[in-house]
Simulated assay, not measured.
Amino acid sequence: MPQRFDLIVFDWDGTLFDSTALIVKSMQSAAADLGLTPPSRERASYVIGMGLLEALRYALPDLDAADYPKLGERYRQHYFASAHEVTLFDGVPAMLEALKARHHWLAVATGKSRRGLDEALAAVKMERLFDGTRTADETASKPHPQMLLELMREFGADPERTLMIGDTSHDLELARNAGCPAVAVTYGAHAHDSLRRYDPLLVAHDVPSLQAWLLQHA
């Protein structure tokens, strides 16, 4: 069967990397460090996928603008102190290896910083599997389409032959803004109903079902 997609772009946190709980805890701890009322789990998890500054502004909207850098620094300290405890979702390495064997280009588009993504990729020894990556501190934050537009331009991939896979509405809106089809996963940050309204090609509830669909339809 001919391949439908040349380029498959994954979100990182909550899609490949099981870090949702750590991100929420780090954001809540950072707020507590500054004597602020921590955001709820729902509010903190909603921002996953955004760039850090945009995420903090949403999670704690009443903070003085001058205090966001301090909050961001506390967040990074909490996150990196425990990042080594987090790993890929079960089945992710095998899925990526299978897609690589089919000669898809694989990429990551993430709200993480370049430092954060590079350290995570090195920790799980996955650098060789990805042909391209984009982070929120080197391009526009999701859901702006710039990440996908840059990756498509890098590989000469057309929008209709580029697939975005993510666990948040920011990922699916990114795909829509770039004119690309998308697949949603529900084992990350956002609930099924908030993802379904973007009409993804698939809503996958675990990595095995995502892999099975990709090997048959991608």
Rank of each mutant, 00 (worst) to 15 (best):
W105S: 12
D13V: 01
P200I: 14
A191Y: 11
F17M: 04
Y75N: 00
E160A: 13
D171Y: 11
Y198N: 10
W213Y: 14
T110W: 03
A81F: 00
D167C: 11
G188P: 07
S26Q: 04
V108F: 09
I23G: 00
V24F: 09
L163Y: 05
D11I: 02
S209N: 06
A184L: 09
T135P: 07
W105A: 02
G111T: 02
D167V: 07
I165V: 15
H217Y: 07
Y79G: 00
E42A: 15
L7F: 05
W213F: 12
D6T: 13
R102L: 14
D64L: 03
H190I: 00
E150V: 03
T139N: 06
M95T: 11
A59R: 09
K125S: 15
P143E: 12
T162R: 02
K70W: 00
T37L: 13
E150Q: 15
R74N: 08
H217F: 06
G35Q: 09
M27R: 01
G166R: 11
R43I: 14
L22Q: 01
H103A: 13
E54D: 15
G111I: 03
S113W: 05
I8V: 15
F5L: 07
L121D: 12
I165L: 08
L71W: 00
D167R: 05
T15G: 04
S169E: 14
L117M: 06
G35V: 08
E73M: 04
R128V: 13
G14Y: 04
E119Y: 05
A55V: 00
M147N: 06
R43C: 09
K142E: 08
P143L: 13
Y58R: 10
M95D: 00
A21K: 02
C180L: 14
T135Y: 06
L52M: 12
L172D: 07
S40D: 12
P93N: 04
L60C: 15
A140Q: 14
L71A: 08
Q146F: 08
E150L: 09
R128D: 15
R114A: 10
D137G: 07
W105G: 02
L36K: 08
L151F: 05
Q216T: 11
A182M: 12
S40Y: 08
F130N: 10
H190V: 08
S113A: 09
K142D: 08
A66M: 01
P69V: 04
D6R: 13
Y79I: 01
A109E: 05
Y79N: 02
A30E: 05
A107M: 04
F80E: 12
G179M: 10
S26Y: 01
V203Y: 02
A140I: 06
A65H: 07
D67F: 01
H217T: 12
K25H: 11
W213A: 01
G72L: 00
P145N: 07
A109I: 01
G35L: 11
E119A: 11
S113M: 02
A101Y: 03
S141M: 11
T162P: 04
A66F: 00
I8S: 09
L121R: 03
M164Q: 13
L16N: 00
